[in-house]
Design a protein around this nucleic acid. Structure first.
Length: 509
RNA sequence: GUCCUCGUCGUCCAGUGGUUAGGACAUCGCCCUUUCACGGCGGUAACACGGGUUCGAAUCCCGUCGAGGACGCCA
């Protein structure tokens, strides 16, 4: 049995799209990309752009994250019509405030037989998965709870066993759906797992929550990243189980690292905080993201001539230009590499177009803001003798490229290789730390003890990486002032840069 | 391992059966310039491979290869 479901003829309905970021850390450049696309799509159709916070994973929840997401999107100028902070007719827009709704709808699925209670523990499932992978089998839920008798279920429930609720994917047949950019995509049900819909803590998974919310919020077009394609059949089965119309699906290509893997913090700055604090202009960022995927028609030679623009101008456009001209059907599906070099060139173009007053204002809002300068005062006041020497002490806070010489960063009793290995651990530790001195210090000391690095070696290494020197204002306070996003980037770039140098050196005897 | 998606210069995009395969970034050279940058001019550089279809394939079809994604009580 093959089930094919077409999207509702939603053309008469007002366009409604959404982005659904998860508050698990710094606001992500991918969120900005998908946000931009959704914003353009909605604005072009006089539709509504909804911001929904997907905070159903309490283990990864970061309390400061939501505000940063709002802040970054506003910085970019991607304003939403409905959201947790501005309200709207289909709220609440924070999934943690909608748990009753999910429970109710999930119960309907259990009642209708479309879902069932599963009593395996996470440990059992993990063990199962490992053995499947070891046996080169595709990891899959074994379905042991699929056909539990009513008596077994009752017994488990009365024994107080925790349970999840899983989607009962039909054993036979396949599910076909339409992707607006790719056409028809079919998944055999053999390859669709019985997805957990409701976790044992009572929170829904993304799969349940996004389907329920998209329906309740009248979302007409789901524009999201390509990584969701393989779970779309589950979503389609859910829509069908509820008897709901499908939205249209537009899966956008994934932003990539230079090595073509999915963009990640290990290989690329992904925090919007980084771009903002480093002095990228929001318009340049939007312009660059708009270049990714190729939805903007490139000017023809004739257009360039008649508009009197130089050829490179065809790569330069505003958000308003994108709203006017962006064509979703033009999007090319190869994953675009997020090329920092071109972003910087674009940013430079925008910077040069600023009037001197505007340029000054931009400086004063970012790297020379009052708040930034004030935060530096306690670091330098006792350490300098003339105001004019502040640069001698604090230059690293105003620089982008800091690359210390090997003689500075390699401790006397260590090799460059083992130091880089330790630096990589340091990066992981810093990533995990709340950005305050006590937490960073505790994390670093713990790492040092584990790896047998003295406090001196440990802290001096980070000092060298951050400041380029063995002499500097207090390390922890400097990290705080410089900011988490930029500090992590500096460490990451240091490691990458030094690794490349080592490889080069080993090639030349 | 299984499934899904993708495949034009190093990178981002043009190109939808007939083009000297175009532009931008990067790179190289020249010019401008006290330096650097900006700016100007020019160069190197790509249709993954193999079969078809066709008078003619970057473009259509099939296969191979390669890349990526998914396979979580993450999103």
């Amino acid at each position: 049995m093959t089930q094919e479901t077409h999207a509702a003829s939603a053309s008469e309905k007002p366009t409604r799209v959404r982005i659904a970021p998860s508050p698990t850390g710094d606001p992500h450049v991918g969120t900005a990309y998908i946000g931009l696309l959704n914003y353009i799509f909605a604005t072009q159709r006089d539709g509504q752009f909804v911001l929904r916070i997907e905070d159903t994973d309490r283990t990864r929840f970061v309390s400061t994250s939501e505000a940063m997401i709002f802040d970054s999107l506003r910085w970019l100028g991607l304003c939403w019509n409905e959201g947790p902070d501005v309200g709207g007719p289909y709220g609440p827009y924070r999934q943690s405030e909608r748990t009753e709704i999910y429970r109710e709808y999930c119960q309907k699925l259990v009642d209708s037989g479309a879902a069932y209670r599963a009593f395996e523990t996470p440990e059992e499932l993990e063990a199962e998965r490992k053995s499947q992978i070891a046996a080169k089998q595709p990891p899959k839920y074994n379905g042991r709870s699929r056909d539990l008798s009513q008596a077994d279920i009752a017994a488990n429930l009365s024994a107080g066993k925790p349970f999840t609720i899983r989607l009962k994917v039909p054993a036979e047949g396949s599910t076909t759906f339409r992707d607006e950019l790719r056409g028809t995509i079919t998944f055999d049900h053999f390859n669709v797992d019985d997805q957990v819909l409701l976790k044992s803590d009572g929170f829904p998974t993304y799969h349940l929550a996004n389907v329920v919310d998209d329906h309740l919020m009248h979302i007409t077009d789901v524009i999201r990243a390509e990584e969701w394609i393989s779970s779309t059949p589950k979503h389609v089965l859910l829509y069908q189980a509820f008897g709901w119309h499908l939205p249209r699906f537009w899966h956008m290509p994934l932003l990539r690292n230079v090595d073509k893997s999915k963009i990640s913090k290990r290989k690329n700055p992904v925090s919007l905080n980084y771009y903002r604090e480093s002095g990228f202009l929001p318009n340049a960022m939007l312009n660059f993201l708009g270049l990714m995927g190729g939805g903007m028609a490139q000017m023809t030679e004739q257009e360039i001539v008649s508009s009197g623009a130089s050829t490179k101008e065809s790569d330069i456009f505003s958000l308003a230009d994108m709203v006017a001209k962006y064509d979703f059907n033009r999007i090319s599906l190869g994953g675009p590499v997020f090329d920092l070099v071109k972003l910087k060139w674009l940013n430079g173009e925008y910077l040069r177009k600023l009037s001197p007053d505007e340029f000054f204002a931009a400086l004063r809002q970012t790297v020379f803001s009052d708040s930034y300068l004030k935060s530096i005062v306690p670091l330098v006041q006792t350490r300098i003798d003339t105001l004019g020497s502040i640069g001698d002490m604090a230059d690293f806070l105003f620089r982008d490229n800091v690359m210390p010489a090997e003689s500075i960063w390699v401790p006397k009793k260590r090799t460059a290789e083992e130091t880089l290995t330790f630096a990589a651990d340091l990066l992981t530790t810093l990533e995990a730390a709340a950005w305050e001195t006590a937490a960073i210090e505790a994390g670093m000391k713990k790492l040092g003890e584990e790896k047998g690095w003295s406090v001196k070696e440990n802290f001096m290494l980070l000092r060298a990486i951050l400041t380029g020197s063995t002499q500097s204002p207090p390390l922890l306070e400097s990290l705080i002032v410089f900011g988490k996003a930029r500090s992590l980037d500096r460490v990451r770039r240091f490691i990458d840069g030094q690794k490349k140098l080592l490889i080069q050196a080993s090639r030349k005897p």
